[in-house]
Computed example of a mutant assay.
Amino acid sequence: MKASKTLSTTLQSVLVDLIELNIQGKQAHWNVVGKNFRDLHLQLDEIVAAARVFADEVAERMRALHALPDGRSTTVAASTSLEQYPGGLVDTKDVAKLVVARLEGTVATMRTVHDEVDEEDPTTADILHAVIAKLEQFAWMVDAENLSPTANVTEPAAAKAGPGKTSAATAK
């Protein structure tokens, strides 16, 4: 099969966002500071590694369809849909928000083109499905950094009674 001009253009838009996600993820990784630094720093490495693999997979699929991927820095900078990542040191809370926005932006690009891709090449659409699922999982995990719990957990009755004592509930 040979990709149409539309499919080539569509996959190119996905490719540049994945490359940009990789680059911005590394920028975030190098410059994150604050509470839970180490956890987020390591999680960013996972995201960067996945984005790099996904970009390679999309580019290689493009070549399999006789399309020409363009991952040059000038092309990526000129055509990515992702906002520029800020320079300097960034607090973990802000990094989480920024990275989630980039993950969701990359997914949005894929969801926007999905039906068109699926119509021309279901195999390529399957690749997009897998990438979307993983990026949405990353977004959920990073977003959890800034969420507040909603459960009202109380101490179990046995714990309230203390060691060697029984509560009314455990004495029965």
Rank of each mutant, 00 (worst) to 15 (best):
I132M: 05
R38N: 08
V95G: 05
K97D: 09
Q137P: 06
N146S: 00
A133K: 12
A161R: 13
E104H: 09
K172G: 15
A133D: 14
V113I: 10
T106W: 08
T74S: 15
I23N: 14
L147Y: 11
A169P: 03
R111V: 10
E46V: 08
G87C: 07
L82M: 10
D118Y: 01
A101K: 14
S73M: 11
T170R: 08
L7Q: 12
Q137N: 11
Q84W: 12
R102S: 14
A158N: 09
H129Y: 12
K172T: 13
K5I: 08
E46I: 00
H129L: 09
A101D: 10
V90F: 02
D94I: 11
K165N: 15
A151Y: 09
V153H: 08
R61I: 05
K134Y: 11
E104Y: 08
A108D: 14
M110P: 01
V95E: 01
V153W: 03
D94Y: 09
D39W: 00
A59Q: 04
P86K: 04
E104A: 10
D143R: 06
D91L: 13
A55S: 03
I23K: 12
D126V: 08
M62C: 09
R52L: 05
T6N: 13
A77P: 09
S8P: 01
V58F: 02
D143T: 10
Q84E: 14
V76Q: 04
P86Y: 00
T166V: 13
G25Q: 04
D70T: 06
T80E: 02
R72H: 12
E120C: 02
P86M: 05
M141H: 01
T9P: 03
H29L: 10
A168M: 12
Y85Q: 06
M141I: 09
M62R: 02
Y85G: 04
T112G: 02
N31S: 04
P86S: 07
L98K: 05
V32C: 00
S167V: 03
T10Y: 02
V117P: 00
A125D: 04
L89C: 00
G105M: 05
F54L: 03
E20M: 02
E136G: 06
M110F: 13
L21F: 07
L18P: 09
L89G: 02
L65P: 15
V153N: 06
A96H: 02
T109H: 03
S167W: 01
L98R: 03
T154G: 12
F37C: 08
V99Q: 13
L44V: 04
L135T: 08
A96M: 04
R38T: 06
K26G: 05
V14H: 00
N36D: 13
L11D: 02
D115R: 13
M1T: 14
G25S: 13
V90G: 09
G164S: 08
N146H: 10
R63M: 14
V33M: 04
R38H: 13
K35H: 13
Q12Y: 01
V100I: 05
M62V: 01
A64M: 06
T109G: 00
K35F: 15
M110Q: 14
P86H: 01
L40E: 06
